[in-house]
Amino acid sequence: MPYLTLRDGVEIYYKDWGNKNGPTVVFSHGWPLNSDNWENQMFFLANQGCRVIAHDRRGHGRSSQPWDGNDMNTYTDDLQQLFEYLNLKDVMLVGHSTGGGEVVRFLGRHGTSRAKKAVLVAAIPPVMVQSESNPEGTPLAVFDGFRAAMEKDRAQFFLDVPSGPFFGFNRPGAAVSQGLIQSWYQQGMMSGFKNAYECIKVFSETDMTEDLKKIDIPVLWLHGDDDQIVPIKDAALKGIRLLPKGTLKVYLGGPHALPNICVDKVNKDLWEFLNA
């Protein structure tokens, strides 16, 4: 399996599939998952002749579980090092949830010289947590509840989240997939406890308002209007106004887990945007 040893000795696992000479698409995953959560999109695009790359963020999946560096700047510096190692250029970046925040901070922090487009899927920017400047945000107590649940019984918490709001399986008439629940659980339990615990602060409190304003490449934002994890009103509807070249596409009735629940639709939108 391919690994990259980073500047601080952390080992990052990554996948590099498809045609090495094809259009390059780089994926960033959500919390507390890993690159496996993108397998439907990666398989589809690789079969269209693309080169598709996804890494397990530090502390997640098959990557190292360092005690330190669980912050958005370090995440994006790790991604930049992967870009340099693989000499990636003219990339379309795709990020889901926390991974969408990683894409936004990456482009705001490291610029767009290696990227030509970006897609944000149910992404966390501008900032999730409620504050005086963000009164519509999610109260801090909700995220404190996440941390308390992890400390009490992480395994049960990591079953409760996918069984309910993440995939929208708590909605009346939802077609519940035990396979998706177990896959989410498996990926989540592969993450380091401290890494996943500290990432709650990362995805809830990192303010990416200024990063969004800096992004000078076309950005497609996909968001479900029934997203119970990252409500559209405090994410996409705000963030799209900050992007110089942003386009918002709302999935009616769409949950947070668009890449898993709306597979064909997401694949189609990625393919069309890549070729636009």
Rank of each mutant, 00 (worst) to 15 (best):
S64M: 06
T138D: 03
V94Q: 02
G69L: 10
P126W: 03
R58H: 06
W67F: 09
T138Q: 15
V142D: 09
E136V: 08
F143L: 07
Q81T: 14
L93H: 02
D77Y: 08
E84C: 09
V104H: 01
A115M: 07
S64L: 08
V142G: 04
N73G: 09
N70G: 04
R58D: 03
D77H: 09
H96S: 08
G137C: 09
D68R: 12
K116P: 01
G111F: 13
F143K: 05
K116N: 12
T138N: 07
H110Q: 11
G137M: 03
L93I: 09
D56K: 03
H60R: 09
G100H: 03
L120V: 08
T74S: 11
G69H: 09
R109Y: 07
P126Q: 10
G100M: 06
W67P: 01
T76I: 11
Y85W: 13
T76D: 04
K116Y: 04
M92Y: 03
R147N: 14
L93Y: 03
F143C: 05
M128A: 14
S113F: 07
V129A: 11
N87L: 08
G59K: 00
F143W: 15
L88S: 08
K117C: 13
L93P: 00
S131R: 15
D77K: 14
D71C: 08
Q65V: 13
V129L: 10
A141H: 10
D144H: 13
V103I: 14
A115P: 01
G145E: 11
V104M: 06
G99Q: 02
R109M: 08
G69A: 12
F106R: 01
V129N: 03
K116L: 07
F143G: 04
G59H: 02
V91N: 01
R114P: 02
R58V: 07
T98K: 04
S113G: 10
G95V: 04
K89C: 07
L93N: 02
R105F: 03
V91T: 12
D77S: 14
T74E: 07
A149D: 14
N70I: 15
G61T: 05
V127H: 01
F146E: 04
G95E: 01
M72H: 06
A141E: 15
K89H: 14
T76P: 02
G137W: 02
P126L: 07
G145Q: 11
S113N: 14
Q80F: 09
Q65E: 12
T112I: 10
H55M: 12
P139C: 08
K116S: 12
V94L: 09
K116H: 05
L140M: 10
I124N: 00
Y85L: 05
G59Q: 05
H55W: 14
K117R: 15
H55G: 04
G101V: 05
G111M: 11
D144I: 05
